[in-house]
Simulated assay, not measured.
Amino acid sequence: MGLFNKFPSFLGLEFKDDMVKIIELVHQKKGYQLRKAVYSPLSNGLIQNGHIHDMDGLRKMIKPLIKGEKFKSKKAVLALKSEQIMLRTLKLPKLPKKELEKVILLELENNIQLPFSDPVFDYISLPHQNSEGTEQELLLVIAPGSVVRQYVQLSKLLGLKPICVDVHSLAILRLMKWIRKELPTTFMSVNVGHHGVDVSIYHQGILRLTRNISLSSSDYLIKSPAITDAFSAIHYLENSDGLKSYAQDLGHEIERVMNFYLFTLNNRDQNLDEIVLCGEAPNISLLGEYLSTRLQVPVQVEDWTGYIENQTDMDIKDMSVFSVPIGLGMKEVSR
C-alpha cells in the first residue's frame, strides 16, 4: 500500500474474567476494515470481577498473543465492565469546559455518594435545557480511578499506547449507531458472558442504565464434558436442555431490570422496543428465540458483518463475539 493510501488503525481490547478479545480496526474514508481479530482464554484468578489480581501473570499470557498476531497499530482503546461504572445525571449552569469540570468535581466530592474514593469521569450532554437556555443536563459516567489505572498500566506493559478507557455498553451503542440507520427509541443490549451478563438500557440514543447479572452458564452444565472457556460452555448449552433453563432464568433477571427502569425510575411512558443480543456465543439465535418468547419483546442478534469489511481469516459465524472490541476500535472517529 502506498504512503498516501494508508489509514489509521486502532486496537480494541475487551477483558473479561476468563478471556481477552483483541481486534485491529482500520478507519477508512467511508467505513471500517477489520484487519485482525483474536480471542484467548485467561487462567483463573488473573482477573476477578473486573479487577486485575495478577498483573505480571496477565502480561505473560497476553504479550505473546499480541506479538504473534503482528498488529500494525499500538493505539489501544480498553473497556471497563459495565458493573464497574456508575451513571448519574446532573443539571448544571452552562459553563466553559474547564469550569464545568471543576463544578462536576465539586459535585462528586460533596453531593454524590460513591462506593469508591478516587473517581474519574466523563460526561455526555443530554438534549435538555431550561427555557432561558442557561442550564444543561449531563450524564456522568463515573469509574474508580484505581481500576482505570490498572488497565492503563497493563496496556503499557504490553507495549501498547492506551488512548482511551471506555465502557462495554457505550462500545455496543457506538457499533449500533454505525450499522443502523435509525435506532429503536428505547432498547436494551444483553452482552452474554460465561460468568455474567451485562444488561444496558438506552433511550433516544443515550445510555440510561447498566447492570450486571451474576448468572454463570457453568451452573447449567449438568453432566457436561470438560468445559474450559465461555465458548465451549455456550456450545454445550446450545445442544442440551441447559440452554432452555439458562434462558428462562436470564429472562427472569432481564425482566427485573426492565421493571426497575420502567417503574422504579419512573419511565412508565416508555416501551422497550427491542433487545439486542451479543457476546460469547458463536450462534445465539436459539437463545434469542427463547428470550423473545419469554419476554414478549423482539430480540435481535446484531449482525455487523455486512457493514464492516472483514479481512481476518476467522470463520464469519464466529464474529458476533467481537461486537464490544469493534465498538471500542471505533472510538476515535465519528460517522
Rank of each mutant, 00 (worst) to 15 (best):
V190E: 03
L25T: 07
R335G: 11
L46M: 03
G306I: 13
I227R: 13
N266S: 14
V120A: 13
E238P: 02
P64Q: 15
P325F: 07
H235Q: 15
L95Q: 03
I316H: 06
P127T: 13
I112F: 07
Q153L: 01
G12T: 03
I326N: 01
T186E: 07
V301F: 02
L243Q: 10
L58I: 08
L243M: 13
K29Q: 11
L158E: 03
P127Q: 00
H27Y: 11
L13P: 08
L126T: 11
G329K: 00
P64H: 15
G12F: 10
P325M: 03
T210C: 00
S131R: 13
S323H: 13
L65S: 10
G288E: 05
N266P: 00
H27S: 09
Q270H: 06
E280T: 06
H203N: 15
S320F: 05
R174H: 13
E274Q: 09
F15Y: 14
L295N: 09
M330G: 09
H195Y: 13
G12M: 10
Q129S: 13
G327F: 09
N49E: 15
R149I: 14
T312A: 02
L173C: 04
E135R: 05
I62D: 10
L92D: 11
S320Y: 13
V148Y: 05
V321A: 14
M1T: 02
G68I: 11
E255M: 03
G327T: 07
K74R: 12
S43V: 15
E83V: 05
G68S: 14
Y246F: 15
